[in-house]
Design a protein around this nucleic acid. Structure first.
Lengths: 214, 214
DNA sequence: TAGATTGTTAATCGATTAACAATC
DNA sequence: TAGATTGTTAATCGATTAACAATC
């Protein structure tokens, strides 16, 4: 009940902490202070401590943080300590590439790929079956799918999102360049590649302001 | 010289404005007020006006904004009014998918895909030639490539980034799950898919804080 | 114990929102 | 002109950084 709302800025930094801690673990590092981590990651030690203390006191005065413990706790915060059944909607280039990428190390298990092209029925990618869209609702419910990855054409994605929301999906990972309209209990995380590329473009561009109208 | 530094938060919103304005143009909308745009986009009218006024006064009191003009100006700010020669480094699933995606509408022209697998030499994707990595430097310089898309394995991406920086690339669009170390005049825009998925995961997870040590 | 480093409060900085005079 | 809506200043809110007492 005393739960503060954690800001988006904090959440965005957690996966990066997690990655750095994972690398340290691999290198056999046992403890780390906020100061050392600060140097490695180019963020302030103060920010690291503030961020972590949103969730609990994971360190020890005079010692710092135990890498394994902190790694595990951040994993729990991010929910990557449990498995998340996932499906990919849209078996085009992007859906295909994502199906081939193995997210299972972090608990994301791709259970099926959905498409509308009949010629893909019965095929599979990396052992993941390609199913037809008319099997969607039944599959989501039976397999208790939590996450749907949306890699459909812009024109078809809203309909798919609505269907998924209706059969109880928890989250949509949306790769279509479009803002989805779904009930507010469905989480939407957007990957807008074009937006990302435009931000890059901005940074290599020098804009000349138009002449003032006199 | 009176140039203020524009914050990242503002830049991040520009592509979204651009997208909404583009849709309005397609729908034949000629003018829009910050208030109307605010409703459509779910941001405050005040924020829209502040954001735009970082770059100039694009509107007119009592009238609002001309959609075409504002669209064009934001396009210039983002640098999507000119062409940006681009290459993809790494012809795996992801590189392949990105090669098939057409970013040319916004000025990003994929000139080549680079790989190390000899069997891919001489092949092409959507008319884009696959070249070998030993041709990299010459190609970048001759074709005046501005942007390199990095879709290589984690273990190889830093070396490629260093080579690209050395031959004058302006920006790296990095899909590898790794922070790159490059000279500070080279722009790096990261697409960390795993981080994005973890942020999604966070939002469907409820973390239980560990028991306080007594 | 002395030294180190956290957890946490206070200070600062920056971004968002509100308000309104300027002006089309 | 009257009404609408911007551009911009001021107020608020939130996030980051600094400081330091608590404590291992």
């Amino acid at each position: 009940m005393e739960e503060r709302r954690i800001s988006k800025a904090v959440i965005k930094r957690l996966p990066r902490y997690y990655r750095y801690l994972g690398e340290m673990l691999n290198n056999g590092v046992e403890r780390i202070s906020s100061g050392e981590l600060s140097n490695k990651m180019q963020v302030t030690a103060s920010q690291i401590r503030q961020d972590l203390n949103n969730f609990g006191g994971f360190g020890q005065q005079g010692y710092g943080y135990n890498v394994q413990y902190l790694y595990d706790e951040i994993g729990k915060i991010l929910g990557v300590n449990t498995t998340h059944p996932m499906i990919i909607i849209g078996g085009g280039n992007f859906g295909h590439a994502l199906a081939n990428y193995d997210f299972s190390k972090n608990g994301f298990i791709t259970k099926a790929i959905f498409d509308i092209r009949p010629e893909l029925a019965g095929t599979s990618i990396r052992g993941i079956p390609v199913l037809m869209m008319d099997e969607l609702e039944e599959f989501v419910e039976e397999e208790q799918i939590e996450i749907a990855v949306l890699t459909l054409p812009k024109s078809k994605v809203q309909e798919a999102a609505t269907r998924l929301a209706a059969c109880g999906i928890k989250a949509l990972w949306n790769f279509a360049h479009l803002d989805l309209d779904v009930p507010k209990d469905v989480v939407v995380e957007n990957v807008h590649l074009v937006d990302s590329l435009m931000q890059l473009s901005y940074r290599i561009t020098s804009y000349e302001r138009p002449e003032e109208a006199e």
